[in-house]
């Protein structure tokens, strides 16, 4: 589904990603872990099409298409979803109006009929249950005045409504208490299917207790330096990241 080959990216001239290689198949959950500054969020941003990052080398294909060639909106329409680490507060834009416009533009791209207000409302109601989000929140301006937990729930709610094939969760666990973490993870798990895939970007192992990955990759200095199973995440939790750094330093010498 997603194939990343030798991806290099920089921001304002500073190289952040230095040759990422990653293959993701339908049905899989991949966790990307790594210390601060290792390039985890950059990878998520580059995949979603954030414009301040410049891809300097490499290629990314998604369902056979050159992903890097697509605008952020077309990536979303093709089925890529980025759950933001810091969801943006947008005063004056109602959540509902925003999401309905987005859904209908996605549907138009896919050659589907737009949803009318009634159908959209019933879709919303169905998906709201999944993340236990209060309908009142959705009648407010997008993310405005939402708590950290509400913002993250809203991300997963939007994901549920947009039904992506590839979901990238960028530090979705940051700032969540245990209850909110469970709700968010539960939502993600329910959305999992054999046809879609998930990338979980996180610093800590705790989210992976709830969203169980098939593969764990450790990112360091913009490269995947180690890949393994869920056991690797537990090892990282126990030993921290220093041994990875040492290992990398060792091989470099």
């Amino acid at each position: 589904m997603l194939s990343i080959k030798n991806l290099h990216a920089s921001v304002e001239g500073t190289a952040i990603l230095n040759g990422i290689n990653l293959e993701i198949k339908p049905g899989e959950v991949h966790a990307i872990m790594g210390p601060n500054g290792s390039g985890k969020s950059t990878l998520a941003s580059v995949l979603a099409g954030r414009e301040e990052y410049e891809v300097t080398a490499g290629e990314v294909t998604f369902k056979g298409k050159d992903l890097l060639d697509l605008s952020p909106e077309d990536r979303a329409r093709e089925g890529v979803f980025l759950a933001f680490q810091y969801p943006v507060e947008i005063p004056g834009v109602s959540s509902t109006n925003f999401l309905r416009t987005a859904v209908n533009q996605v549907r138009e791209y896919r050659g589907q009929e737009p949803l009318d207000a009634v159908k959209f409302l019933s879709l919303m109601k169905e998906k709201m249950k999944l993340v236990e989000i209060d309908q009142k929140l959705l009648s407010r301006a997008l993310n405005e005045g939402f708590s950290g937990g509400e913002k993250k729930k809203n991300e997963i709610f939007q994901m549920a409504v947009l039904e992506p094939t590839l979901s990238i969760l960028d530090e979705t666990d940051s700032g969540l208490d245990i209850d909110a973490l469970k709700v968010v993870a539960n939502g993600v798990n329910q959305l999992k299917s054999k046809d879609n895939a998930t990338i979980v970007v996180t610093h800590y192992q705790r989210l992976l207790d709830y969203i169980v990955p098939d593969y764990v990759h450790v990112l360091f200095n913009g490269r995947i330096v180690k890949s393994g199973t869920k056991a690797l995440a537990l090892e990282l939790e126990e030993k921290g990241y220093d041994w990875i750094k040492d290992e990398v330093a060792g091989t470099a010498v």
Binding site: G49, P91, V93, T101, A141, Q158
Partner: peptide
């Protein structure tokens, strides 16, 4: 707000629509 614009586009909304919606909200 470029960050807001990107957020909206990342949900599948065209740049033109996102821009108009943000300005309209303003």
């Amino acid at each position: 707000d470029e960050e807001a614009l990107f957020y909206m586009r990342a949900r599948g909304m065209s740049k033109e629509s996102a821009r108009a919606l943000l300005l309209y909200a303003f």
